[in-house]
Write a protein that binds this DNA or RNA. Structure first.
Lengths: 250, 250
DNA sequence: CGTCAGTTTGACACGAATCAAAGTGAGTGG
DNA sequence: CCACTCACTTTGATTCGTGTCAAACTGACG
């Protein structure tokens, strides 16, 4: 599936809604100019579309502009592991330049709007704009840290702790992006996605979710989650406070 | 625990045994000069020593010169997850600059020799040597990819598959570093370490290991593993072929 | 010979997977 | 406006893999 370039609808970087978002640090004028020239277009992925395939190479790097997605890896049979959820500002595809082929697939959960950058010019970014190069490394280290946290959850936590962790994790990320409404936020993932992310079966995920709801910690409705007892949920999750500092954007 | 700087025993980068190792790409003369100046010393960590602590900040970045170690994260109780094993050439501490504090601990399995680089000069690396900046990002993306693979194993594979995967993974990495002897290699980790890395209990790890041995796939002896049936073990692991291309070194 | 870390074994309990089936609600077409 | 479908959620019964508990074994070392 070739990414379709929505050239005519491209937003100029200066007006990028993400730059306006206080979660991200601001570009210098030179950086902005470069990023604008680096950006070769935008693309849209409809919900359910797999737009990067494990094992294939990708000509582009992407920044999520809008919407939710996830990265996953599959086993030879039909088991799959969701290794990360993608939210606005997330940078995808770095593994392309490193290994020649993608090590994971990326699928859209909602309609996903993405900025495209030709990987052939990544070197230019490092060489002409070391600040941006540093940012790329920064983002990569952040992703790695999230993956480690996820690994801790899947390897050591019980089912209810895992679910509590994932909810808190997603909530905190959404909150940083101002995508929450009070203690509720929209989560365009279903219970199967939660199960695949946490290494649980669908049935057990459902039962655990209901039990958390029974304990008055959360309310799950298809498409949205509300946190009813923040303190209790975080205690159960055993999750550290989120990092609220500004982060870079490419 | 402050790192002890073994200044007088410092190896000049030009004679670094890792550079000679064909697993790594060679530095240009300028890069070599910079790396030499960037390196502020060496340190030794004795087996069992935790030399980077989750939650503390680290003044240095490290490259493993010699020996084995591991990165781990702990839960409020005594559960812990080993998120990665460290082998020569691995670069640690990038998360230091990103978050102000380390997100994981690092412990030595054998006597560990490490190169120290002051994180305060990381910016200089990116700005004066974009090639090295690119390499830092490359290494970070590689680590992330290994973490994802690990997550797939812990989240989706059965106990015997996980153990097969870990053995194959470690074997392939060691082989790339020419640290194997035929189908055997030394693994200075005990069964508790395997258990902590794979999200299994010690007892079940032991039983599974014995079963793999019973099936003629491997031979475990304290400190070393021999692969008796490479094909069978890899089939069980469902693990992709290793990446054998040269990789960068900092 | 005693100690200690690491390994091994057996009995049992429990959390999570699996199997099977029904419930819900949005969307569609008659 | 009422069937009908389809994706998703929910529940109960049962099985199975893995954890836990308890104890013995092994080999290195002092």
């Amino acid at each position: 599936m070739k990414p379709r370039v929505a050239g005519s609808f491209t937003v100029p970087c200066a007006k990028c809604p993400l730059i306006a978002n206080p979660a991200f640090r601001k570009f210098t004028p030179e950086e902005l100019r470069f990023v604008q020239s680096f950006k070769s277009g935008e693309t849209i992925a409809e919900p359910g579309t797999v737009f990067l395939h494990e094992g294939q190479s990708s000509e582009y790097l992407y920044t999520v502009l809008q919407g939710w997605g996830f990265k996953s890896k599959a086993l030879p049979d039909d088991r799959r592991q969701i290794v990360a959820f993608l939210l606005p500002g997330d940078f995808v595809g770095l593994q392309g330049p490193v290994f020649d082929e993608m090590q994971h697939s990326v699928e859209a959960l909602t309609r996903l709007k993405l900025c495209m950058f030709p990987r052939s010019r990544l070197w230019e970014l490092f060489s002409n704009h070391p600040g941006l190069g540093y940012d790329v490394a920064w983002l990569s280290a952040r992703t790695e840290s999230i993956a480690d946290e996820h690994l801790l959850a899947v390897g050591q936590r019980s089912a209810s702790e895992r679910i509590a962790y994932l909810i808190v994790h997603l909530f905190d990320r959404c909150k940083g992006l101002q995508m929450t409404k009070g203690s509720a936020f929209s989560v365009p993932a279903n219970q199967q996605h939660f199960a695949d992310a946490l290494g649980l079966s669908l049935v057990h995920t459902n039962k655990t979710l209901r039990r958390l709801q029974g304990r008055g910690l959360i309310r799950w409705s298809p498409g949205a989650i509300e946190i009813l007892n923040d303190r209790g949920l975080r205690d159960l999750a055993g999750h550290p406070a989120p990092d609220t500092r500004q982060r870079p954007l490419i």
